[in-house]
Design a protein around this nucleic acid. Sequence first.
DNA 1: GATGAATGAGGTTTCATTCAT
DNA 2: GATGAATGAAACCTCATTCAT
Lengths: 222, 222, 222, 222
Amino acid sequence: MAKTSRRSNKEQTILDAAERVFHRHGFANAKMEWVGEEAGISKASVYFYFESKENLYMAIVYRALSLLNDLMYASIQQNKQESGLNSVLALMNTYFDFSQRYPLYTEAMLDYTALIRSTASGNNEDKLSEALKTSVYFMRLKDIHNIPVSIVVQEIKRGMEDASIHGKRQPEMLYLSAWAMVLGYLKLTNLAGRRHSLHTVQLDEWKEYLINLIKYTLINPV
Amino acid sequence: MAKTSRRSNKEQTILDAAERVFHRHGFANAKMEWVGEEAGISKASVYFYFESKENLYMAIVYRALSLLNDLMYASIQQNKQESGLNSVLALMNTYFDFSQRYPLYTEAMLDYTALIRSTASGNNEDKLSEALKTSVYFMRLKDIHNIPVSIVVQEIKRGMEDASIHGKRQPEMLYLSAWAMVLGYLKLTNLAGRRHSLHTVQLDEWKEYLINLIKYTLINPV
Amino acid sequence: MAKTSRRSNKEQTILDAAERVFHRHGFANAKMEWVGEEAGISKASVYFYFESKENLYMAIVYRALSLLNDLMYASIQQNKQESGLNSVLALMNTYFDFSQRYPLYTEAMLDYTALIRSTASGNNEDKLSEALKTSVYFMRLKDIHNIPVSIVVQEIKRGMEDASIHGKRQPEMLYLSAWAMVLGYLKLTNLAGRRHSLHTVQLDEWKEYLINLIKYTLINPV
Amino acid sequence: MAKTSRRSNKEQTILDAAERVFHRHGFANAKMEWVGEEAGISKASVYFYFESKENLYMAIVYRALSLLNDLMYASIQQNKQESGLNSVLALMNTYFDFSQRYPLYTEAMLDYTALIRSTASGNNEDKLSEALKTSVYFMRLKDIHNIPVSIVVQEIKRGMEDASIHGKRQPEMLYLSAWAMVLGYLKLTNLAGRRHSLHTVQLDEWKEYLINLIKYTLINPV
DNA sequence: GATGAATGAGGTTTCATTCAT
DNA sequence: GATGAATGAAACCTCATTCAT
């Protein structure tokens, strides 16, 4: 309602539009003009709210990570009384749904993570950093980008303490394995497009199978 | 040695160069000039051998798929006398090594698959098809792109018949799950860059764990 | 105190700001937004008081010329009883100080003069005239832009009449030569930035030398 | 005649065109497209030969300075046997002609000098350096940009030694004063446009007067 | 076969200027 | 009066692709 709110609303509208455009065409192929059209404003207006294409992308990553964090916090809150295992499974479900509902978010977050790694190394051959160093969102992200891992690992540890999860493996390995499965599922699922099956396999059925598998790996040492 | 061979040699040199360049910068960001430089020839010469950037990419996909097919054929050949399970595990190992040694190949093949699906749908908004319809490699690929799936599924079925693999699930689902894990592993591994660990997990150790997990899913119904 | 005065105050504030900004970055590179920031108001407000960037510039020229005229009138007034030579020297000193204290003014006035000449010619390829024709200040300037020359030339003539200045050269030539020296000094001085010397020459010393030189050219025919 | 020559020829053609365009509209207002049109080629071709607008400008500065150096070397060579005074006067004439024939060169060289000073200071608020650091010509210029001053000062010193020039002032001050006069003359002359007079003064006559004045300042201490 | 040279068709970004509140 | 928001019209620069030698 206040002025801030009006501006914020417009920013959200643009982000919505950008998400659709980036999702449809991929970040590299997407034109800023399309983002404007999709948002019903001019290209220059997009630049008024977000200073560069990369900053806009980072804003999306920020949005994605914020949402994921919120969802995860809510999940562990809801499963406080439950065993560590159940909390972790809930978290997995949360992430599964999240990444399935917002495939772009997953992709964007992966891009961001790759960026962080390359920045950490001495790879300054890519001038990505040029426009990124001045990105507000890029800087803000540093404060929150470790939260998801921390949350999951913490709940796995809790599960190990209450013996609902086996202790034969590092929590981080269990986490990574589950994450890898979801990621792989997502990647292959994308290939299917709007179809509901892939190589004669029903996607829903497959998803359930994977969740079971993850649960299994938490309970039984392999 | 013949003229064809000379041409073929040059083509291979260019493909080698293109693979390195595409891997370093990603297909979208890579410039044709860099491919020329990396191959030690001029940009125009690259166009003499490959008609377009996309055709060049398809040539890489073709190369990737050919190699994978060869490796898989060799694998099942070597494990003819073994149980179906062992043959499948060998295939998995093959694919694991393949995708780890040639990360670009995996990515390129996925891009290709996505392309196929979008072509199959009515999505003609993307002008990818423009330059692709005339791509020799794109057409040739149609003849061989189903081979890997067929091979693995066939060996899984053999394993079910000789009872080395449980029969509670569709062969395709087991196949997809294994594939998803490898894909997820690869994606996350890429993030690590040249490092040997990710979130305190040793990559080698994690890989071994995943292979064990795949084996487990083949033997025990989950 | 009246409304006009309030408006006038704001205009002066903006002009002050614009002068600083134009001086720092040059007219072409300066952004209207910076002018607003420097004046502590919004960009749109700048446009409320000055219709265009060029009009703003013309306002500065007007201010500059008004100030110079005032200073020169005061100078000849003060030297009424003095010889023509002394009056001219006083004028020169006035101009020297003026141009050194307000380098932008000198530059702006030169730009304006160039504009006048190009308008006088048939050069309508430059669209400067577009926004200029409607500039109030541009029109007002026409009434006063010849005053400085007239004043100096008049005093030189007076000096020739009272024999304090030699009569071997046109007054205008003496005037132009003195002007050229000051202009050259200013241009080269600008290069020095905040330093006090240029090529081992102390700027103060050099200035004194030039003034002496000008005096010399007025007394002795060269 | 060789390949290098062909390329070099084109470069010269483009530089010629750029000089005309920059002269007509000023560097800041000139569009790269115009340069292409003037040279009879496309905008992109201009970029093929010169990587950026600023690099193109630096190439012009380089050309200007090279020419000036050549002219000055030739001048002192021709006046070896003459007195220092005469050599200096010849140099002045050379520079006078040079700056009158190529006003853009003078302007460009001044811009360059200003750039050097600002680079030497800590003024990195302007991102001019961005595209400049990679400019070949900008780097090459550092090797030759001090030559003109050195030459003139050296000849003035020679004149002081052979007593054809008075020794009451620093050579550098005499140099700067002469330079200032020429610069001022040029600036005011520009205002005249194609006309041959300024404020009733014939430009040729004025020029002669100034040269005489410079000569006078070298012989007689003021 | 090979390549230096050329370009058309965009792409991101900037900014003076205008509106709506 | 004041200003946040909006935009049209460039400007610089890039790159896949083609051509002439």
